[in-house]
Every structure is written in C-alpha cells, then in structure tokens.
Design a protein around this nucleic acid. Structure first.
Lengths: 385, 385
DNA sequence: AGGTCTTTGTTCGATCTTCGGCGGAAGTTG
DNA sequence: CAACTTCCGCCGAAGATCGAACAAAGACCT
C-alpha cells in the first residue's frame, strides 16, 4: 500500500510546481508505478488540465515527453482594488499574465459600481486574449480592508463605504471568487514570484497607510478574524501627540505612513498630499523629504524589530508606494531592526525591496485563484466527476 | 476512487482525536466501507495500537464496540527542564499522566549530568507505573533556550552553559527524542489541554524572563531559526534606562520580568530576588509589589497589543511563575491590550490565565512526543512494517 | 415471552486499482 | 548500424476495496 501520495490532484500539483515535467519524474517522486502515472496523466490530459509538448532532452535513451499545464482552456483573473485604482490581470493556469489593465476607480463608489467595472474589464481582457468567457475558472480579488475570507465579505472596512458585509462572490454568479485583503495578496504574489522556497516571510506595504501580509509555513496567515497583519496601528514610542484616524495616538501609520509624511512636509512649507508627492520630492533630491522618509523607516523598523523577535521570518519585503524610494526607507528600517532584534533572529534575515513591484497585488490575487483551483481536492473533484 | 482519507494512520488519528470511537463512526467519517474499516482496525489492534472496550450504548440496534488507543503497551515521557528544576511526566498514549516527579536540578550542570538525571527519573517512573523500559516510544523535552528543532540541538542558549549544539537526542540511543523550547511546549500543552478547538493562540510565560509560544493553525510556529516567540527583548517605550542582559535597553523582560520586579522591590527596601519572592510579597498583600506587578502587566500588555494587531489570535494565555498572581497581572494586560489593539482583533479575543498551570510544560513535551508517534506517516510505517 | 426492527460487525465473491514485466518506440553512443 | 538506454503503452497478476448477505446483539412492540 502506498503511504498516500498518488491522487490525480497530487500529480497535478507536482506538475504545476515544476517539480516534475515528465512521467518518469512523477513516478520517481510519487513512488507509483510508471503505468499508474500514465493513467493519471491520461485522465488529466482528457480533462484538459495537462498537455504534452515536444519531446525533451534525451539523457541517453528515448527522450521523455514533456508535460505542462494546459494553458489554453483555463484562465484566471487577479483583481487589485485600491482606494483609487483598479488593476486586473488575466492569467493562464501557469500564472503567466495574458493581459492586464489598470485605471482609476474609486472604491468608494460602492460594490455594485466597482464590480460592474471589474466585470467589464474582465470581458475586455478575455477578448484581447481571444478566450471565451467560459474558460475563466476563478477570480481572486484584493481589497483595501479586512475581509472574512471564508465568505468573501468585507468586514467593517474603514475606507470602503457601502462594502460592509457585501457578498462579493455572489456578484459573479458561477465563477469561483476569492476575496482577501490587498496586503495579503501582495504578500502571496511576492512570495510565489520572488521567494518560493522561503517558509516564513513578511510583506510590508508602506503607502498611505501601513500594513503587513504574513506568510507562515508557505501559507497566508490571516488570523482569527482575518485582521492579522494590521500593523499600521501598532504604537511607536515618543509620538504621543500624533493622533490617528483609528482614535488612538502614536500609531505607526500616523507617524510613518505616506499621508503622515506628506502632512509633515506640508507643515514645513513643502506642499504634499499623498505618498506619491512624497516620492516625487525625494526623487527631486529634497533633503527634508529624504530625512523624513528615513525617519519613517526607523519608526517602521522599530515595529518590525518587535515582529522579527516574535515571528522570526526569513525575509521581510518592503513594498507599497513609498518603496519607490526604498534606499532611504530601507536604510532606516535595517538600521533599527538589526540594532533592536535578537542576533539569532537577524542572522539569516534579509530585508529587501519588493521585486514584484506594482503588479504584486493583481498577481497575488490571481495566484490565490489559481492555487484554489489547482488544490488537490478540487482537482480530484474535477477528474472524478 | 476515494479522495484520500483512508490509511491506517488516518484511522488512528480519528480515534486518538476522539472524533470516532466506533467502527461505524470511522466508516461515516472516512467514507470507506465498513468492511474496509474493520480491516484497518484489525491491523491496528494486532499492532497493539488500539483496543476494544466494553460495548457502548445502543442507539436502537446492536451496540457498537468502543475503540480506544491501547494504553498498556505504549508510554511516552514529557520532560520540563528549567533553569533550576526538572519535571518529568510519564504518559500513556492517550496523554494521561501515569506518574510524574519533580526535583531541583541546575541546568548549568551541563547536558551529560542533566540527561543522566532525566534518564534515571525515567526509569523510576516506569518502575512506579510497572512498565518495562521497552514500552517507552518517544520522549519530548522542553529546555529554557532556543533549539534547532529538527536536530534537537540547543542553539546558543544564554542560560544553559555547555549545552550549545549538544545533540540531545543521541543521548537516549534508540528512543525518539524531540527537543523544543520550554515556552513552545507549554503553549502546546495549554492548547491541547484547555483550548483544543482554537486555531490561533499565544501562550505568554511570565517568569524570571518573558517568552511566548505561538500556536498558528493548530500547530507550533517556530520561525526560521526556531527563535520565534522571543518577546522578552521587545522594546517598551519610556524605559530607556533599564539595561538588559542582552545588551540592549528597555527590553520588556528588563522592566516587567520577575527578576526586574524583584530588583525594583529590593531598591524600595523590600528584599526580593526571584519571581517567587515577588509572588509571595503580592500574596502577603504588599501594595508596592502589587503596584509593580500591575505595572508590569501594563507593559506586557503594550507589547501584546502590538502582537494582537499583527497576529490576531483568538486566545492569549498567561502562564509562568508570576501568573500565580494573575488577577493583578491580567488586569494590567487586559487594560492595555483592549485600549491599544484594534476592535476587530479584540472583539473575540480572550485573555485568560493558564488552566494547565505548573504541569503545562511537561505535559506539552509529552504531547509533542505522542503526536510525533501518532502522526499518520509514522503509524503507516509501523503498520506496514 | 416472542417476534420484529435497527444497528453493528464479519465473511466472501465481484470489481476496481495498482503493479511490474514485456515489447515496441525513439533516441544516444561507439 | 548495432548495442545500449530511456520512455511509454499493454496486459495479466496481485492486491485493495466494495457491497451484499448473513450473523450478532440489543430495543421495542404486542
């Protein structure tokens, strides 16, 4: 009796992860007989999940037929909804982006309007990629607020008026829809794209506000209420005067977020409103702005130092609008983290800017959808249907 | 084809978790045929892992034969090594304590001496429970310092001279030995014993120092270097003058740990050395001590407030020596956490004293061993051998 | 008390999976 | 171009699982 690794879903997982590209690989990895593997692969091919490509390199004998996910008959979408933008990426089953688009969109216009816009963009992208609507298997959506992941309903989001408890998945009828916090999907995108082998990773988004996506043991940690990673309202010392929109004072976000820096710059006579304005000032070489960004980095670093001791990640990725000036932000963060965290925890810790950049959220949202669809359970359901 | 849940290991897991106590239960839960289940159960009985007890209650038909883990032929031990004590619990396969003992033992005497002592105690406990040494299947050990869990080697532990990189499991020859940080095993013990249904839990140990065990998704989170949960050296605001043994200042442990409180009391003319002295003073009604404990609670609460925002646990358990005066400690902690954490995260959060108490560490260490032994993979290995 | 009903557990043949050897296919190497 | 290697499909054998039939053990009704 085999110890367990053998279902069609497991086989597909190995193919999709790139662990195996041939039938022989699969036999070696699963321990199943070659004939059994062939049978599984046949079933997957018949369902349109896997395809054979040209023969690969010979290693001295008959060259193996390469296997890969069938990219034609399946499409997925990742949707990145921000306070003022909407970015949609259409992806194939391997996670490659087929088409994408971005435009301005106020999330405050409410779920009906926003989701109608998303739906329209989905149609456009599908048309551009010349795929019928029917191949769209699942959609992942990242939204700027807390979500009850299991039901896809926003949970008292502060900047999404009208969205509270709105059943987002129902809007799209049959298609599988997964809704998550934007920082979570960014963390997922960054992890899968740039750090696939890392077990424990933190993705810190520094934009108008500050949030953090947590990858623990390769999976997103959402916490009990789905509010994990909300580090923007952690208190930092020495800033009791800084009031925060949450009602408390000295919140990290209220002293080191893009909006807070912009306000400080305005007070100094340098008009700035958003994180983008701050970035522009820094890039223009303004030393005041530079100093404030670096100081913000120190404050963020102070909080991260605590979290490093607590969570002991292998990698911390800094993303979000302000990471465009990451040299200065990172300098402050690194300085503080390496000073205030324990040596054991920092010894192998690396703190880097996002390698995935602006696309991380849409990508991560799409990957959320793809991984859901490719989960062994779901694949077994499809194959045995 | 069954979607997967069927191996002997899976069946045993259901029995050990209490999810199923009869063959019919197993058939219902796994979806396998009754005859298949009987076959699996027979194999488990033959290997001495499961036993039948008297018939249970009839529900209108033939009463089912009850199944449970076979308690006679298997024993496990949990060892709680502190700086100055050694506690050993001998447990059966269901996690019941068969015999236990505790005595003073300086961990600073080095691994050879300490482990010889443990080994001797194991023999005594086995004799007391009238079991031959051969039934001891696995041993879990909690030690007061960081450990590389995979190898069971202490990793530069500050208060365990001579233990660095010592291969603890090798000392016991054939028996399976799992070594982990003491706070981790306490968290495990508390979780399994008092909060089995909870997914995300923090166990905070307030003793001489301060540490935290993390249960995420029902499993221990150890972090990249196994140093996760080391919250004793998180910085707290407004105490820059308090130097810590780690070389930094304003560490939580340096201002709110038992040793720190004792020192402050001594400065106030109330001689105290250890956390136990502090507890004694509080219990004698000393208001200075009471005030300091409550203030320590506030400082711990400040750190926990950050961690609640970040990790979003369902339960925080307070344990360790100082939790003997938990009313005062908890008052300070709750006060600060509920003030400084986000409502979404605190809404369903409960902060409670340890229900498992002094035995949590030895219990948790034993459970670590038992769960390792009962893991489906290991059971399948045993049954198919 | 005795018959009927319900639920449990076992036995056993039928069916479905998986295994592994064989032979053909498709390359490489000398 | 012959020998070798690796890959892949085919097929009979071995093994696992199922489900029907039957026996066991108690509840329930008359």
């Amino acid at each position: 009796m085999t110890p367990q690794p053998g279902s069609a879903g497991d086989v597909l997982t190995l193919i999709s992860a790139g662990s195996a590209t041939t039938r022989s690989d699969l036999a070696r990895l699963t321990g199943l007989a070659r004939s059994t593997i062939s049978q599984r692969v046949d079933a997957l091919i018949e369902r349109g999940l896997v395809e054979e490509t040209e023969s690969g390199e010979s290693t001295g004998g008959r060259p193996p037929r390469q296997l890969r996910l069938h990219t034609e008959d399946h499409a997925f979408a990742g949707v990145d909804l921000g306070a003022t933008h909407c970015r949609v990426a259409l992806m194939d089953i391997s996670g490659n982006v087929l088409a994408e688009c971005e435009d301005s969109l106020l999330i405050s216009e409410g779920p009906e309007n926003v989701l109608a816009h998303v739906d329209q963009r989905l149609d456009q992208l599908l048309a551009r990629a010349r795929r019928p609507r029917g191949v769209l298997r699942a959609v992942g959506i990242g939204v700027p607020g807390p979500v009850e992941f299991a039901t896809g309903r926003p949970n008292n989001p502060p900047i999404m008026p009208g969205w509270n408890d709105y059943p987002v998945p129902e809007y799209f009828g049959g298609v599988n829809v997964l809704v998550d916090n934007d920082v979570n999907v960014m963390a997922l995108g960054e992890h899968r794209n740039a750090f696939p082998g890392i077990n424990h990773l933190l993705f810190v988004k520094v934009g108008t506000g500050i949030g953090c996506g947590i990858v623990a043991d390769g999976k997103l940690h959402r916490g009990a209420q789905g509010s994990a990673g909300d580090i923007g309202h952690i208190r930092v010392s020495g800033h009791e005067d800084a009031g925060c929109r949450c009602g408390n004072s000295a919140c990290l976000e209220a002293v080191a977020g893009g909006a807070a820096i912009a306000r400080r710059l305005t007070e100094l006579g340098l008009p700035a409103e958003t994180g983008a304005d701050v970035v522009a000032l820094v890039q223009s070489g303004n030393t005041q702005a530079l100093r404030l960004v670096r100081e913000a980095g120190r404050l963020i670093g102070e909080v991260l130092a605590s979290l490093v001791n607590f969570f002991n990640p292998e990698v911390i990725v800094i993303g979000g609008a302000l990471s465009r000036v990451h040299e200065h932000l990172l300098a402050g963060i690194r300085e503080t983290v390496y000073r205030r965290s324990l040596p054991l925890a920092t010894h192998h810790l690396s703190i880097t800017p996002s390698r995935t950049g602006i696309a991380a959220a849409a990508l991560g949202a799409g990957l959320l959808a793809i991984e859901h669809y490719l989960s062994p359970d779901n694949i077994n359901r499809i194959v045995n249907a």
